[in-house]
Design a protein around this nucleic acid. Structure first.
Lengths: 238, 238
DNA sequence: GGACGTCATTCATCCAATCATTTAATGATT
DNA sequence: AATCATTAAATGATTGGATGAATGACGTCC
């Protein structure tokens, strides 16, 4: 459906996925540009542009004569949407754990800031997202519910006016989408989550930071329980 | 001294700084590749590679016929080290405020996780960083103290084992460096901060999450007061 | 008059070939 | 054995051209 991926995107995806999958050890050099380009089937220029994209994400380091080497995973920008997507296909469970932890840390605090400082524009974006969620929930098939949920999430983190928090929210959205899909597919979960979202909007509108934080926390915990009960999740026997 | 910057780095810095400084309105198109390349004084290939780097940071969007357009700031990856550096030269006060807020949210929670889950390797990295801070503090001139402080900060956020938190910490390090420099230049601040750092290491080694969190919080608040008292900071009259 | 298809234009896209620069590995010199 | 010049191998950068995609204008059909 989506248009054909351009060559550049194809090469970036190919290399990024290979790196995440551990095709090359950290510190190990990739094949030289000429051979790697012919192996992939693109020109050297296209390969170099793709490599530059991965350098910008902190995954590669390239130097004359030495070649292109994979940087250790600690150096990767794990908050980059592409990196998150590549990691999703691999160790999805670990990513879900990390994402959930980050949510518990950041979102209640972000809700607190939003309740303290949200201006009318931010409040309206929040209410619009909530309305979209409600209409999508009423609509049979729930088309658009996940998108509305993400928009709500985004509006909440933007409402505090802290751009770093905004970027952080946008980063984890890719990882969040998966959990939202699970919640939407679980019967009754959508109806159960709507009151929680309404409570958040109420708290932000009333400029009640404590209420906003607790409402978000309750929502996150409910979502985590949905995920834990979803099929394909190993019960925590450790 | 650092070597001469390569053409690629030069162009990325030039364009990134220009975008952050608002040389082009969000949504406005940049000059076409040919003219922009000749204007900067590089070839199309070098310009294209630089543009790809900025696309990877979420600042540009390029399409045939439409051209290269600046994306709205909400879409930028504000957690990218380069983006933070470019923003630093402009509205440094706002960035300092956002960074400080993020620290207060993330670092106590990260310290809590570190105390819960730090393995011996992480603990050793933490202690090594502390030792480096102590030796740098004893050394006249304090050379290397800022670097050691950043290494400590990094080790703490890595110790929790959450890669997203690790990337988050690495992201704000660039912004943090400034405040560390201020603290180091303030007489007596270095000696005052060392016990706080030792308390963090003790709490992590003792697997005491609450103590770790409070120790970090105390350190952050002390640093904020140092910044507030530093010259060039407008007193909070609002 | 409005909707739909066609076409030309304008860019980015991708490729191929070439030269310059950096740098490690090697060899020569003392 | 340590230092310095040489060399070769890889990236860095440039040029020119061919291709493809998106847009706006134009014309046709209902």
């Amino acid at each position: 459906m989506g248009h054909f991926p351009t060559t550049h995107q194809r090469v970036v995806d190919l290399l990024g996925q290979r790196i995440v999958d551990g095709a090359w050890e950290p510190g190990a050099p990739l094949p030289v540009e000429d051979t790697l380009a012919t192996e992939i089937g693109v020109s050297r220029g296209a390969l170099r542009e793709a490599v530059k994209s991965l350098v910008a994400k902190g995954m590669l380091h390239v130097r004359p004569r030495t070649g292109t080497r994979v940087l250790p995973p600690e150096h990767w920008n794990h908050l980059d949407p592409d990196v998150l997507r590549w990691k999703q296909t691999g160790d999805a469970a670990a990513l879900l754990r990390d994402t959930s932890e980050l949510r518990r840390i950041v979102e209640p605090a972000a809700a607190r800031l939003a309740a303290e400082r949200a201006d009318p524009g931010h409040v309206r974006a929040l209410r619009d997202a909530l309305t979209a969620m409600e209409t999508a929930a009423a609509h049979p098939g729930r088309s658009g519910y996940v998108e509305a949920d993400i928009a709500f999430h985004r509006a909440l983190l933007d409402a505090g006016g802290n751009r770093l928090l905004g970027s952080l929210g946008r980063a984890v959205e890719i990882a969040l989408e998966h959990s939202f899909v699970i919640s939407t597919q679980t019967p009754g979960a959508v109806e159960a989550s709507l009151p929680g979202h309404r409570a958040i909007v109420r708290a932000v509108e009333a400029h009640d930071p404590a209420a906003a934080a607790t409402a978000v926390q309750a929502l996150i915990e409910a979502a985590e329980q949905e995920i834990a009960r979803s099929p394909g999740m190993p019960s925590d026997t450790a």
